[in-house]
Design a protein around this nucleic acid. Structure first.
Lengths: 136, 136
DNA sequence: ACCTAATAGGGTATACAAAGTCTTTTTTGA
DNA sequence: TCAAAAAAGACTTTGTATACCCTATTAGGT
């Protein structure tokens, strides 16, 4: 239960690798894929998602590639994970109380809320900088 | 991400319902399924799993049915969830460090560990009694 | 003994999501 | 204009969640 998908795992690997490079360094997707051992086509999809929300910047054409969209100390693990996996939702009823049952409420509801908050809290407290350098 | 499956949701609903009944009351599966609005055949599978590990007791034949295996104040939500969903594992590498990469270690590892502990902590702190009565 | 009510358990069907590939298009620098 | 690179979309494959059905087993009542 609660397992990160491959996509999420690959996403983290890829962007942490980027975070370990100088901020203005443009990296080839193929190089990143090789370095972090991820299927290049799959990683391409992931980085396209990152690019759309500005987590990375992309450059097409000759000499193109990817670089981090912001300084790594300003990107949290939560952002990265939610970018590709969607929001952290332990149970549907956290989003739509109707799923708690006909009454629109159940006693388990606040527990899932709490789980959600804890998880988000942990992931939000970690930046790419820390992950790249090993500091903290 | 991190979403409970239907199975887990149904499992919780079913056993919380049982926990709201007198300890020695034997309930028909069909009655429980109707009460908590879960497909009976699916709930049967779930309760079979519960039965194997003693979370509920089952009685076959005429007058048979299910009852809670232990007092509801001694059963945690964690037990219930892990019984049907398997252990709480945010990432494979928490189980098998080799998945962290070739080095067998990565900086993200301790983060997933922490997520795991937080989630388990929350779920372990809630008993079926509390969920059934709404106390806490 | 026999019949019926009930769970146990195996097998199957379906549908959706994850994982990964392939091809074509667009952009850009040289 | 050519070649390098990402963007975009279509497609396949695989896996898992969800659900149902059928038979076996067990126990109580007659």
């Amino acid at each position: 239960m609660m397992e990160l998908t491959r996509k999420g795992e690959y996403a983290v690997r890829g962007i942490v690798y980027l975070a370990g490079k100088p901020l203005d360094k443009v990296c080839l997707l193929s190089d990143i894929a090789t370095a972090v051992d991820v299927p290049p086509t799959f990683l391409a999809k992931i980085f396209q998602q990152f690019s759309k929300i500005g987590l990375v910047k992309s450059f097409r054409g000759t000499g193109g590639g990817f670089m981090l969209g912001r300084a790594p100390e300003n990107i949290t693990l939560l952002e990265v994970v939610e970018a590709v996996e969607g929001p952290i939702i332990p149970n549907r009823c956290v989003v739509n109380p109707l799923d708690c049952g006909r009454a629109g409420y159940c006693n388990v509801h606040p527990v899932w809320k709490q789980v959600q908050e804890k998880v988000r809290g942990v992931l939000e407290g970690v930046t790419l900088k820390e992950l790249a350098t090993g500091d903290k």
